[in-house]
């Protein structure tokens, strides 16, 4: 169990990151805001919660843990966190998906800290398995984390990789399924049922944990001690989340997939999001609504 103080600090950061992600997409008039919002706590915990070994000064450091964002449409979340960590200047976010910008709507490998170009689903997970296998061959100790969308789990290649990873005992591979329950047009369980997800992954030979993906307590509990795990099976965290978390009117509404709020809606979005503010006495971000 993490201390209340640690969790509060992570919540504070998550609010700032979610805010900056929204701001970036509003300015660009595009970006997958809701898909990004569902995995902010997961990414914040990985980067700021002491889970991942990484060095913003040396993005190519060989010993770094690899973060493969297989759901590449959540690039706004990752870009915002990477800039927050110091991988590149925050001002680069202002030009997201605009003329002269360095990155667009889907994930781009050329950005410092980003491992792969991704936008097409069912790719990153297999690459992550290849990296994990390469690490085993070289006896490298870094871990590979793959963030999957739940809608991505409709891709057959995901299950090709799932079988492969457990057979090859890739216990240095951690899959995190951002289970926000929504796909593009509807809830997953209305399309083709993905549940029971735990059973599916378990039957594919994975060590399965299911958590609330917005609770730092649960995220850190599930990933704490990750380097000392005894199992030879790869680990999957099924993180139940809300698509559009923090922005009430955008949450759980399929029509908000893949778009950013316009000027009028943006104001409402910031107000809604401010509910997540920790309202710290010594707030360092004067530019953010409290």
């Amino acid at each position: 169990m993490k201390s209340v103080r640690e969790c509060k600090e992570l919540k504070r950061r998550a609010y700032h990151i979610r805010h900056d992600m929204l701001k970036m997409c509003v300015k660009a008039g595009t970006g997958h805001v809701t898909s990004s919002s569902s995995c902010i706590e997961l990414l914040t915990a990985l980067y700021h919660g002491g889970i991942m070994r990484h060095d913003p000064e040396k993005p190519e450091w060989g010993g770094r843990d690899r973060l493969i964002l297989s759901k590449g449409q959540a690039s706004p979340a990752l870009y915002t966190i990477l800039s927050d960590c110091g991988y590149f200047p925050k001002k680069d976010l202002d030009k997201f998906a605009q003329a002269g910008g360095k990155f667009g709507v889907h994930l781009q490998k050329s950005v410092p800290g980003v491992e792969i170009t991704c936008g097409s689903l069912g790719h990153g997970f297999g690459i992550a398995a290849g990296i994990a296998l390469g690490a085993k061959m070289d006896r490298d100790l870094f871990l590979t984390f793959a963030i999957l969308g739940d809608g991505e789990c409709y891709e057959g290649s995901i299950w090709e990789t799932a079988m492969f990873a457990s057979h090859n005992r890739l216990n240095n591979l951690v899959a995190i399924v951002d289970r926000n329950h929504l796909c593009v047009t509807d809830f997953t369980e209305n399309l083709i049922s993905l549940e029971p997800m735990e059973d599916k992954w378990r039957s594919f030979g994975w060590d399965v944990r299911r958590i609330n993906g917005h609770s730092f307590d649960e995220i850190l509990d599930s990933l704490g001690g990750i380097r000392n795990r005894c199992s030879s099976d790869p680990l999957v965290i099924i993180a139940d989340t809300v698509k559009g978390k923090g922005i009430d009117f955008m949450s759980n509404v399929p029509l908000w997939h893949g778009i950013a709020p316009g000027a009028k809606d943006a104001e409402e979005a910031y107000v809604s999001l401010s509910e997540m503010c920790e309202k710290c006495d010594n707030c360092i971000r004067k530019d953010i609504r409290r």
């Binding site: 491992e115 069912g122 790719h123 997970f125 297999g126 690459i127 992550a128 398995a129 290849g130 990296i131 994990a132 296998l133 390469g134 690490a135 061959m137 070289d138 490298d140 057959g156 290649s157 090709e160 990789t161 079988m163 492969f164």
Partner: peptide, 17 residues
């Protein structure tokens, strides 16, 4: 599983294989 074959090979290549 040809899709996975290309993906795994690409991941391996990223580790210098």
């Amino acid at each position: 599983a040809e899709q996975n074959a290309i993906l795994v090979a690409s991941g391996l290549a990223m580790t210098g294989k």
